[in-house]
Structures are given as C-alpha cells and as structure tokens.
Design a binder for these strands. Structure first.
Lengths: 242, 242
DNA sequence: CGGTCCCTTGAGTGCAATCAAGTGGAGTGG
DNA sequence: CCACTCCACTTGATTGCACTCAAGGGACCG
C-alpha cells in the first residue's frame, strides 16, 4: 500500500513550492529572501508520502539526499553489531533529516515513519552548488547541523538525570515543539510507543509506563493511551533543571 | 603564569602556517589544495598557549572563533541550572573546538585545558567569507560538524551499555585517537581525572576506578596512576559491540 | 614537611531493570 | 455485528548493578 502511495506521489509531483509552505520559518527558507527561496524551491522534490513503518532511508545506504519533513513523525534509529535498536531522535514537521550521512558517504541511521508522513527531498550536491550562489544557504545548513550537535549536548545532560526528570523533560520538549508548530502544547498524541520513548530516554518501557501513571496520580498530566494532556506545565518543568 | 604565556604568544605571533602543520590531515586542510591551504593560513591566528585549568572559551561568551587544537587535551563541559558540570567531550590535537557556538550566537559549553595546550584561532566570519571562494572549505566545515553529530550518536549507543563496556570503549577510542596522531596506541597518559572520565561516561569516579582495577586483574591493561598500557586490545574490543 | 587533591577499596543502599501476569483496545475475519 | 487475536500497555514482585557514604593511601606542590 505504501509503495503504491510512493509511486502515486512520484508521478504526480504537485507543483507546490517552498514559498507557500507553512513550515518555511522552521525549515531551510528561514532567513532567505523570497528570490533565494525560489531558487531552493527548484532543486526540491516535493510531497512524497509514506505510510507507518516505512523507511525514509536505510542505514548504510548512500547519502544522496536531505529530507525536509512536512507532516507526520519520524524516528531516527541506529543499530549496533548485536542488532539492538537505539532511537537517536524523533523528527517533527519542519525539521531536516539526513545529518547522519553528513560525515561519511553513507547514512549511519535509518529513518522510519511512525505514522503517515509527507516530505520533500533535497540533493546535497545541488544544495552545495546553490550554496555558492547563496552564501546564506551554506550558513543556514551549518547552523542547522550545529543545532543537531546542541541537541546531542542536551541529551548528555538528560542522560545523567533520574528517570522521572528525563520523562518530564521529554514531555515538556514535545509540548514546546507542538506549540512552535501551532498545535496545542497541552494536549497532543504520542506518535511513538512506550517502548520507543523508553529506548530514546534510556529507560525500560515498564519504567516509562509507571512514571506516566505516577505523573497522572500527581495531577501533572492525564494519559489515555497515546493521548496526553498536560494539566500542570509548571509542575512538569520543576522536574527539569536548567 | 598562563596569562603571561598568552601575552607572550600574542606578541610573538610566529609565522608558522597551516602548510607546515603536521596536523593538517586531521584538521581543516584535509582535502584542500596547497593554494587553498595558503588562503586559510592567512586568516588563522596561530600558536596561542594556555596552561592547565585555563579556559579556551567560556559558556555564554560570544561565538567569535573556532579553535584548532595543536597540542594538549581540552575538555568541553556544559553546566545545568544547579551548577552541575557535564563533560561533553575530550578534544585532542588536530580537532576543532567551537561547534557548540554554531547554532546560536554564543557558546553553550566551556572549553578547559587539561594540560598545557597550544591552538590556532579561526574567525567564523572570515571562514564563511573564504568559503565562498573555496567551496570545498564550506563542505569540510559541514562535514566536520556532521562528525560531531556522529559522535553524539556513538554516545547514545554507549550510554545504554554496561559500565565496563563504556569504559572499555572509552579506552579503545582513546587508543585509536593516539594511533592516528602517531603516538603509541598501547601506552599513553590519561590527561583527565577519574572524576572527569566518570562524568563523561555517566559513571561515578569510584566505578571508573573499580573497573580499571578489574581490567588490570583480568590482564587487559596495566594502570599506574594516569599511565595506561593496553596489553590485550582484542580483549578490550570484545567489550565493545559494533 | 605539611597540606591538598586524587585515587583506591570496602560496605551498604536504592533506583531502575528484569521477569511475570494480567488488562485493554484496535484491527480482522467470520 | 460480534468474537477473536495480537500487540501495546499496565502493574506487581524481585533482582542486581552502580551509586553513595566512608576510610585510608599516595602523589604532587608549596
């Protein structure tokens, strides 16, 4: 079914461009002039669609494109020699995928759709070429890459904290990202399983579940399956130092 | 004493350039032509020196330069609201510092010398300007930034593993980095304390100490204070999956 | 020679993992 | 439409790894 979707969208290739994309202020166009965005628009392949569980790219595959997520959520995972999966990041609309291919010639992670996703493709070589004409573009790309490093630092700090602080910070971070995208920061759906949250936070899924119940008992949140409502954001933030 | 060193080196500004630097193949010059390296050389301030415990830059300071480490070791640390220190990375000669300033306008980490260090300075604005003339330079910078992301992924994987595996991987990684720099991969000095190793690995210093003794008892390594000799590299690597 | 800091080793504790059982909800097929 | 199945989630009981607390030893520096 999803391969059908892919085929369908490849053929259709609707002519919507970056100028009209509502995610521009989060994505590459941030800080580019209208004219420059138009140039970027030309090298972008737009509106591909994939279903839940589909791979946007595989670890080990040649790094041949950045992806700009338009809708849906993606998990970025890497594997060790024993086949264990490690969730490296969750990616939301307006964010770029592919930084794990930047240092070598191949991706080191796999990007997997957690629900139906749509995205644009940006060939790195063309981005690079365009970067010579638009210096600001190179700068933005470097800055976005720097943000990834920054996220890594945040994770280092988080990984040293107690289980409840990690989960509270995770929920607060999700809330903030929903807010930035114009969605409710207090009520949203978790697109990932408890297992995946636990993997991401370095916790057992049972621990995640227990903490959710604990937060609910404390009156901080209400949980109903994948839906979460935050009742007491301040209380949640009190768990997160910094 | 160290401020004296700094003053001294600032005045002297010896005219050694990137072309003659032995660390070129690890540092920025990798993949640049002789002519291009010459251009980079011109914007580099070379051979500053600092003593143990001195700051190369402070968290919160304006991001006004990349640093290329020439000798010595540096720890990159960040602080949380409670003043807890988190060791984000250890930096060795030939590696760049300053990626933590890339995403914003200020450094988010402090860079602290673990022993006497010497380094070069590269102003980001001039690097950026030069990047327009030398596209390869922008590419290298982006690639180096990507390597930082890659290191972050490695850490994610490592942080989920047992204490002994973390320490074994740490020692193996250090060994490899010494080898790449032409030093003995089997015998080297730890420039950081057990406390700092523990902080970096997410372990208590006592645990690091205990594991060192354990590795020694197993015949994997010999430890004498800060000196480490690796007797059985394969045995050490057997701890590290992947 | 004294002081300080770092390291080592021991004893006890606690937090989160593991093991195990049971519940609930979404999707499927009869 | 309902029963069935599967998978995710929840909750409980137990275990174990690494932390904390504590004390002693050793190296370096003034």
């Amino acid at each position: 079914m999803s391969s059908f979707q892919q085929l369908f969208s490849s053929k259709r290739r609707p002519q919507v461009s970056c100028e009209s994309c509502s995610l521009g202020r989060l994505c590459i166009p941030q800080g580019l002039s209208e004219q420059e965005v138009e140039l970027v628009s030309r090298i972008v392949t737009i509106n591909r669609t994939l279903g839940k569980g589909d791979y946007l790219y595989h670890s080990g595959e040649w790094f041949h494109r950045f992806l700009a997520l338009k809708s849906g959520t993606v998990k970025l995972v890497t594997l060790d020699g024993a086949g264990n999966e490690y969730v490296v990041d969750f990616v939301m609309p307006g964010e770029l995928l592919g930084f794990d291919g930047l240092s070598g010639e191949r991706y080191t992670c796999s990007a997997i759709a957690l629900e139906t996703v749509s995205y644009c493709e940006l060939p790195p070589h063309q981005l690079e070429r365009l970067g010579r004409e638009i210096p600001k573009l190179s700068q933005i790309l470097l800055q976005l890459s720097g943000s990834q490093f920054q996220l890594g630092i945040q994770r280092v700090v988080l990984s040293r904290r107690q289980a409840d602080e990690r989960l509270a910070a995770f929920l607060a971070h999700l809330s903030e990202r929903h807010r930035k995208r114009g969605f409710s920061p207090t009520e949203f759906r978790l697109s990932m399983t408890r297992q995946e949250i636990g993997n991401y936070l370095g916790l057992a899924p049972e621990t995640v579940s227990r903490l959710m119940s604990q937060f609910e008992a404390s009156g901080l949140i209400v949980v109903q399956g994948k839906m979460v409502r935050i009742l007491d954001m301040d209380g949640l933030l009190r768990f997160c130092p910094q």
